[in-house]
Design a protein around this nucleic acid. Structure first.
Lengths: 301, 301
DNA sequence: GTCACGATTGAAAGATATTTTCGGTTCGGT
DNA sequence: ACCGAACCGAAAATATCTTTCAATCGTGAC
């Protein structure tokens, strides 16, 4: 039987283009060709049979089916249906799209507009691609954890710190580690019921994987926040939260959009945990707010 | 081959229900049953095969195909595609209004949607409110600076670090300070041609104002990134970049949206500077990318 | 450079879904 | 009651989709 229709049209099905981008790295050359064709012209591809699409992309039926599977559909038939749906939406929605990359000679106002647009796009893609079930599990684990360790290096390190700051604010015990040695040292202290979170866009940052592995092997609940759901880091992750991967251009390093994406995930975790632990979280938030008040001059207004 | 896609999604496809009604009289009893099922639940029917729909309506495959033909499609396959499109349109049609705040009992999927939406809103607001002239001046100052100091505390401290990381990547000399004493100590070293940036949402964080003031008094070009353009910090700022202030709710502390807003400003600064110093920035970016490559396991594709 | 191995790929076989055919059934008219 | 035409569905024929498997390619080890 065919895939449940909710799966096809529900919110998780979100943006196909985003999914293609996230999964592209884990695709083989010919699969990428198929994925690209599908992302570029959903309507056109919806009109084609497996054989047609295979010919169009210069590949074989098998490859088309494989691609469909990778994109999360049980087979080509279902991908095609989803494509038809997408086409219809585009037809009605008519997205404006500021597609151009940022150029060296763009005036500053354009830079602002383009950056804002791309970050908005990143947010939408991330929200669409986020697995709410895994997210829910992560929230549950965090809310119940004795302590939480967060690992991140470089730009991801800042996200790790952001999460830590937030969790501390609602009375949870959390630490961010960017020093790999200290991170491992701490990770081996974790045990069942504790949570370890690794944040890495590439998913293959050794310095972040090692502590997660240590935590994993010591029985902690491990979470990976990564843009590459098939990367090494997921090997030691009980839960994987996928961030979106937008194309990176020379003037816009990947770190930028991955950071936006990671922060959204982190915010979701935070709010989720705050909901679960509302009884204690609300007063804790108020208290920390109060404590900081005197550090602000009475000034302004 | 399949019907041309325009035929399927074009305006004549309009309301399927209407077509069913018009053609109903000319249909036989069993065909009417099929047509009715299709009109009532396009999404549901899209998930069914001919056989499935035949069974559902208590008819045969042949009848289903005949109905599809009567409705103007070459066969059931195409009707099904059109149905999928229709379902998607309906789905997207009723998805406005995420006006409500995040509630304690919101399901996790709503949390994700709302957070993403609000952050998008924040980005739009920030982009709209940003003074590009001031931004341009700040970029010019940064690009020419001998060194740059960035002050930020708490969540803003992370933004300060983010900016610093980025500037370092393109070969500029930048430091982030979150320790107020060290910050002041460093600030007094600054002189004309140097840049000092203070990041504070409230604009009245004493620990951040002091170093900016010191830098200001020593002749450095001072920039304030704040959500309150009338706050004390602007007193010592040559340039003020305003971040947006969205209402804060109990479950969504101000830190969240101000961070998003600040990061966009910081990104704009970075890209602006990268443009100005493209000759040196581009190779520097490439070099830092290269240097980090070996820290990533060869893992995954 | 060469070899060996795993990954990737497409041809073709196999399974499913769709379309067509065709004979049986119903129903109105005589 | 009988006839004929329209209607319907079972099953054959066809198209489409999926799986299997062997050939090929690329890659890293030696």
């Amino acid at each position: 039987m065919t895939q449940d229709v909710k799966e096809i049209f529900g919110s998780p099905g979100g943006s196909l283009a985003a999914k293609v981008r996230t999964l592209a790295p884990s695709m083989t050359r010919s699969m990428q060709r198929v994925a690209e064709a599908v992302a570029n012209d959903p309507a056109g591809c919806a009109a084609l049979t497996v054989t047609g699409l295979a010919e169009l992309t210069g590949t074989s039926e098998a490859t088309v089916v494989r691609t469909a599977r990778l994109l999360g559909y049980p087979g080509y038939r279902d991908l095609r249906l989803a494509l038809a749906g997408l086409a219809a939406q585009q037809q009605s929605g008519r997205a404006p799209a500021i597609t151009t990359d940022i150029a060296v000679d763009d005036p500053i106002a354009d830079v602002v507009a383009k950056l804002a647009y791309e970050e908005q796009q990143t947010l939408a893609d991330t929200a669409a691609g986020l697995d709410t079930v895994q997210l829910g599990s992560a929230v549950t684990a965090l809310a119940a954890a004795r302590r939480t360790d967060v690992y991140g290096i470089g730009a991801s390190g800042l996200v790790a710190q952001d999460l830590t700051q937030k969790l501390l604010r609602i009375g949870l015990i959390a630490h961010a580690h960017s020093d790999p040695h200290l991170a491992v040292t701490n990770a081996v202290q974790l045990r069942s019921g504790d949570v370890a979170i690794a944040i890495t866009h590439s998913g293959s940052t050794g310095d972040v994987i090692e502590p997660l592995r240590a935590a994993f092997e010591h029985g902690a609940t491990t979470v990976a926040i990564t843009g590459r759901p098939d990367s090494p880091v997921t090997q030691y992750a009980d839960l994987v939260l996928t961030t979106s991967t937008s194309r990176e251009t020379e003037l816009r390093p990947a770190a930028m959009s991955s950071r936006t994406s990671q922060l959204l995930v982190v915010d979701c975790l935070f709010v989720g945990v705050a909901q679960r632990t509302y009884e204690t979280a609300a007063p804790a938030l108020a208290a920390s707010y109060e404590a900081l008040a005197h550090r602000h001059r009475s000034g302004s207004r």
